[in-house]
């Protein structure tokens, strides 16, 4: 998994690239969580993520819940068809902020 972070105002955009599984999940948390903890609105761009398993889905849930605690939000953007299918299988499309 690789990533790219850009910031504009109060919004941090994180582009993730590759496959998100148990092996990279700690790295994903290290990349995403500090931005949420700092109170920024985080946009997670998943257009280049073609595979995500339950560990990756857990990171999305944890990010969402952490953002609520910090009175901010995480918006998941440009999710690929294959990852959207997994999100929908877990019935999370109404819970997570998808754009």
């Amino acid at each position: 998994m690789s990533y790219k972070v850009s910031e504009e105002g109060n919004i941090t955009t994180i582009h993730l690239d590759g496959e998100i599984d148990m092996d990279v999940v700690e790295k994903a948390k290290e990349v995403i969580f500090p931005h949420i903890d700092s109170g920024k609105e985080v946009h997670l761009n998943l257009s280049q993520v073609q595979y995500m398993d339950s560990s990756g889905i857990s990171v999305l849930i944890e990010s969402h819940q952490k953002a609520l605690e910090k009175n901010t939000k995480v918006i998941i953007k440009d999710v690929s068809k294959s990852v959207l299918k997994v999100i929908m299988m877990a019935k999370l499309e109404q819970i997570l902020n998808l754009e």
Binding site: D53, S54, I57, S58, V59, E62, Q65, A90, K91, L92
Partner: peptide, 14 residues
Amino acid sequence: ELDNVKPGGLGTFF
């Protein structure tokens, strides 16, 4: 349970 949204516990469901 899917209604109990929290990290983890989805692998077996999938």
